[in-house]
Amino acid sequence: APGGTVIVTATIHAHEMREIAAGLQGSGVALIDSPVSGGRPGAQGGTLTLMLAAEDEALERNRTVLEAISRTIHHVGRAPGDGQVVKACLQSLIGAIFVATYEMSVLAGKAGVSGEVLRRVIASTGAANGLTDGSLEHIIARRFEDTGSGIGTMWKDLTVSLELARRLGVPMHSTATAMQLFQAGMAKYPGGDNQSVARVIEEIVGAELKP
């Protein structure tokens, strides 16, 4: 209804967000393009990160609603699609970190390195990050489902990143590799979480990361 606001928190193509905006033009309904990061834990805890694109007035009018689900709101632009572009860039980085972690975990497992030793070493270096540490924790504990990171979602997000890169003519070798590995993981473990990619690599080499 006129005076209302549509808030899109899904990760979709930037051009799809612009199509939504075109459909709302002249309706009196504001649009907030606000993909999120933080997964199920962030949603449940109200600590999601928002990459938000909207006019200032729409943001302020809906700030209370947005702050109910987010601890960090980044106002990244005003044009529909601006939020989706930032999210696509973020997901390309996250995908690369994930697959590097999974490959490294299998290499360490094959070489006989203790998983907990590996976690401690990485945590004390410049390579430390929450994605790697959380992934290693799940892999060591053999938790590949119901950890709040469905593999299909990450695969979809990487295809969004690659489509943006295709449209802009930007080569994205790491992102393309990550997408293919996630596709392999999804084919073998369609109900699994992100770290199921590590299981696929483990099965190829016949080794897994032990505590």
Rank of each mutant, 00 (worst) to 15 (best):
I139M: 10
E103R: 04
R167F: 09
D157Q: 07
V121P: 02
G115I: 02
Q84S: 12
G77E: 05
G206V: 06
V86F: 09
A53Y: 00
L158N: 01
G42M: 01
A68L: 14
G42N: 08
V99F: 04
N194F: 07
I122S: 05
T101R: 03
G109M: 03
S27H: 03
A43E: 13
A100W: 01
V200N: 09
S70K: 09
A141T: 05
L50P: 00
R18W: 02
M154I: 09
G23R: 01
G39A: 12
V36A: 11
F144L: 10
V205S: 12
G38V: 04
V8C: 13
A88E: 06
E16W: 03
E67I: 10
K156N: 13
M104I: 13
L31F: 08
S161L: 01
Q25F: 02
I94Q: 04
L24N: 06
G152N: 13
A123P: 05
S114R: 09
G46F: 11
T153G: 10
A178E: 07
G206C: 09
E145V: 15
L162N: 02
V197S: 03
A21R: 01
G46R: 04
L93C: 13
V170Y: 05
L59H: 10
L118W: 07
R119M: 14
S149K: 08
D82T: 05
K188N: 07
R167M: 15
I139V: 13
I204Y: 15
L158F: 09
D146I: 10
I73Q: 03
V113N: 09
G152I: 13
A111Q: 12
L136N: 05
E208L: 12
Q195R: 12
S135P: 02
L158A: 07
P2D: 08
S135K: 12
S92C: 15
S161C: 08
A54W: 00
D193W: 05
L136R: 04
F144Y: 15
S196C: 14
I7L: 14
L59F: 14
E145G: 07
R61I: 11
E57M: 11
T132E: 04
V99Y: 00
T5R: 04
M154E: 00
G3R: 04
P190Q: 15
K87Q: 10
